[in-house]
Every structure is written in C-alpha cells, then in structure tokens.
Amino acid sequence: MSADFWASYASGAVGLLIGNPLDVIKVRLQAGASSNLTTPKAPAQQVYQFSGARSLIRGTAAPILSSGALNSILFMSYNRTTDFLKIGGPDATASLGTSWVAGAIGGLATWVVSTPTEIVKCRTQISSSASPANSWKVARVTLRTEGIRGLYFGGVVTALRDSIGYGFYFWSYELSSRIMASRMNSRGMESAGQEAAKILLCGGLAGVVTWASVFPLDVIKTRVQTQVLGTGVLIDGTQHRRFGAVEITRNAYREGGVRVFFRGLTVCSVRAFFVNAVQWAVYEMLMKELGPKKNLPPSTDVLL
C-alpha cells in the first residue's frame, strides 16, 4: 500500500488514543436519557467516572481497526471526485466549492464502515464502570441480538453527519491553508518551522470547524445509537420501543431545548483541535520517512 495510506493510518491511531478520554466525555454528555446512563453530568463530573487507565482508551479498538478501510474509501472517493469536478486539467487547483463537494461525497461513501464503527464505539464508551464492556463484547451482543442490521442502526443520520462534516473538513482546511500561505508569502516567511506551524494550525482549525458544522447531527446520532438494548428505552419506569432520528430529535428538544444539541461541544472542540494538530505532526513526520508529501488530511478520525 502507499506511504500516504500508512502515514494516515498511523497518525489516525495516535490521534484516537490521545483524544479518546475527551471523546468518552463527549459521548456521555450527548447520550443523556437515551442511553444506559442516568442523568447527564458536567465534564468535570464525567472525569471521575473513569475507573482506571483502561477507561481512558475504552472504545478505541473499533475505530482503530476500521481506520484503514475508512482512509481507503475517503481518499479514493475524494481524489476521484476532485479530478472529475476540477476545471483546467489534473494540474489545476481545485476550487473551494469542489473541495467541499468532493469531501461530502467521500464522507458519504464512508458510512458503510463508519456506522458500525460508531455503534460499537459509542455503546462501549457509555458502559458503566460497574459493568464495563469492550468493543468485541458490544459487537458480539449486537450481532447476536439484532443481526447485521443492528450494526447499521442510525445509518442515515451517520451518513448525513459524515457527508456534511467531511465536506467542511476539506473546505476549511483548504481555505485556511490558502489564507495562511498567502500571508506567509507576502511576508517572506518560508522556514520549515513556520510551514509546520501553518499545517498544524490549519489542521486543528479544520477539526473544530468540522465538528461545529455537524455537532447537532452527532448528538442525534449518539442518542439514536446508544438507546438501551433489548425491549426498548426506559423512560419513567416504562419500556418503550427504540426511537428513530426524528423522534430522538423531538424528545431531545423537549428535554433541554436547543442547548441540548450542543451539549459537549466545548469538550469536542478542544479535543478536535489538539488531536488534529498531533495527527498532522505524526503524518508529516512519517511522510518524510516513507514517501513524497501528499496534500491530504492525515486521518479520518475527524468524525470518529
């Protein structure tokens, strides 16, 4: 496989391990009453739910294993769509609109892998400290009780989130890169350290913009996928069937108004910036060792 693939895969795995503690907090804040958890807690309270070092990496197995497939699908779809839509030949610079559309198509193509990954990851992360689950156990239980369809529960909202999110990821990275490159050139700033700072800053900003653009969709996705398994959702002592995305949205709004759709956004933004910065650093380092530099995002961890 190409150097770009392995650099992307490794940088994504590092980012997952670094960002997972904050991702666990984010998912638990988002899940609310739809999950096995009881009352949503503030981020500081969520930290104390970690029972040990293993809790900090809970839910990482599924996205790490699927990262290679996600990279392949996303990069292939993005590159081919960009080449198809680009005006002026293969050496021309793609417009920002082309970058968004190509990213959106690439993100949509990844749903076949990202939906089961998200199901397993989120259900693992909300498991209680008293009865912790791992990714393998969650996947086995889901397959045994719900079959293959169970791994794709919430697939529509996941596909919508991925499509819009990756569109803004590629778009925001290209926009910020061009703005900063223009300013650096006008000031004669071309050192290796300044170039590295530009890459890290643009990658971090792209991660924040991406999550801000799709966070309400991610809250809905999390609540859909983390509903209590079995006969339904426990509400006021009564068992109900599991709800779809529209019903989840209505119930969430009744629960906390518009604010509920942004619960955990601060934690997620901090995580997105630093995780993407680290991923870019690892990506660039590996690309220097393995092969020629590619102007592509280093990982599909943005939306995992």
Rank of each mutant, 00 (worst) to 15 (best):
M1R: 15
D4K: 15
F5A: 10
S8P: 05
S11F: 00
V14S: 02
G15Y: 01
G19I: 00
N20M: 13
N20G: 03
D23C: 09
V24E: 02
I25P: 00
S34I: 03
S35M: 01
L37W: 08
T39F: 11
A42E: 14
P43F: 04
P43N: 07
P43K: 09
V47C: 12
Y48A: 12
S51L: 08
R58M: 13
G59P: 02
T60M: 06
A61P: 00
A62W: 00
S66W: 05
F75L: 09
F75M: 07
F75D: 01
S77H: 05
L85R: 09
K86N: 14
K86V: 08
I87Y: 08
T93C: 07
G97C: 07
A104Q: 11
I105T: 00
I105W: 01
L108K: 05
V112I: 15
V112E: 08
P116S: 10
I126G: 01
S129E: 12
A130F: 10
W136L: 15
W136A: 15
R149N: 12
G150M: 06
G155R: 01
V157E: 11
V157Y: 09
S163P: 02
S163R: 06
G167S: 03
Y169Q: 12
S177L: 07
R178E: 00
I179E: 06
S182P: 07
R187V: 10
G188D: 03
S191H: 06
S191A: 05
G193I: 06
L200Y: 04
L200D: 01
L201Q: 02
G204P: 00
G207V: 01
G207T: 01
G207H: 01
V209G: 03
V209Q: 02
D218N: 14
V219T: 03
Q225S: 10
Q225G: 07
L229C: 06
L229E: 15
L234Y: 10
I235C: 10
D236F: 14
D236Y: 13
G237Y: 10
R241L: 03
G244L: 08
V246Y: 12
E247I: 05
T249K: 04
N251K: 13
E255L: 02
G256T: 00
V258R: 13
V258D: 07
F261R: 02
G264N: 03
G264H: 04
L265Y: 01
T266E: 13
S269A: 15
V270L: 14
A272N: 02
W280K: 12
W280R: 12
E284I: 11
M285Q: 14
L286W: 04
L290M: 14
P297M: 08
P298W: 04
L304P: 07
